[in-house]
Design a binder for these strands. Structure first.
Ligand code: SF4
Ligand code: SF4
Lengths: 143, 143
DNA sequence: TTGGTTTAAGACAATTTAGTCCCAAAAGAA
DNA sequence: TTCTTTTGGGACTAAATTGTCTTAAACCAA
């Protein structure tokens, strides 16, 4: 079972990496992240570019360049990242892939699906990069 | 958000279609199903072939041929279909795509993810084709 | 200013998923 | 038998996702 594309997963992991940095103001090198997390450098670069375009990250070229968060990790929530990388309609899907249905006479999976989606949305809305990076900072989890 | 591939969705819908048939013993034509549900005939055929190979369906060629359930709809559960069409390891995934991790120092999403997967597994284990086809039989839901 | 470093951008290739097509094989009817 | 209908099986194409590569642009330091 997979609910996020590789692009979203890599983007999320990189943001957690950045958020877990000691010095919040310093740029983090994409090369360093890609090697540390064993993700293709160019692929990760492309993903982070869209996060930069969408205002999640600052970026700077040249020596000591890289990317940095535009906001404190406690103010960046998963839901925003997922909507940027997966699409704005991420939570507007039907379990069976129907374009529209279910209002009048929903199928037996409808209530389940609506509920699952709201659980995901709720969790994504409440989980910040700060929370996600907490255990990394303590050195308790690899990324 | 998508948790099932198109192949699984089409396979499930076709099984629901078969299960909602009045005469349980009669073969249902794949052509009829593909046209009624607006699914590619050849694609659906291929999917139903793997379900036949895996003992979910009988099949017969020629006039009045088609597919039929090997068991009563009340004895066929979603979990079996999903594991056949998505792979046996469908429920053995990590939220962040790691091959192994989390036992010692799980990430903040681990508990959430484990819980979500068990909710899915539980529901898939308890939902039979009979339940899924109930509303169709009443004519209350399109497929 | 010159050269090295690093992100930006976009073309390109590989892989996976989705879908199409053709022909063989089986079943039924004439 | 012979013809038609319908599934079986595999090759093929299309599209989406994933990943690679090359060059340009920005930044820094000597
Ligand atoms: S009723 Fe079922 S098929 Fe219709 S939108 Fe809800 S989940 Fe999808
Ligand atoms: S701890 Fe997090 S990253 Fe590790 S297996 Fe669990 S969900 Fe995946």
């Amino acid at each position: 079972m997979k609910v996020l594309s590789n692009a979203s997963i890599y983007g999320l992991r990189a943001l957690i990496y950045v958020a877990s940095q000691k010095n919040e103001k310093e740029y983090v090198s994409i090369r360093e992240m890609s090697e540390s997390m064993d993700i293709s450098f160019h692929f990760l670069t492309k993903i982070l570019q869209t996060l930069t375009k969408n205002g999640i990250l600052y970026s700077s070229r040249g020596p000591h360049g890289g990317v940095a968060l535009t906001r404190p990790p406690g103010q960046v929530f998963m839901v925003e990242i997922v909507k940027i990388l997966e699409g704005e309609d991420y939570f507007d899907t039907c379990f069976l892939g129907h374009p529209d249905c279910g209002i009048a006479a929903p199928c037996p999976m409808h209530d389940f699906w609506i509920n699952v989606k709201s659980v995901f949305l709720d969790r994504f809305e409440k989980t910040s990069l700060e929370e996600l990076s907490a255990k990394i900072k303590e050195g308790k989890l690899r990324l």
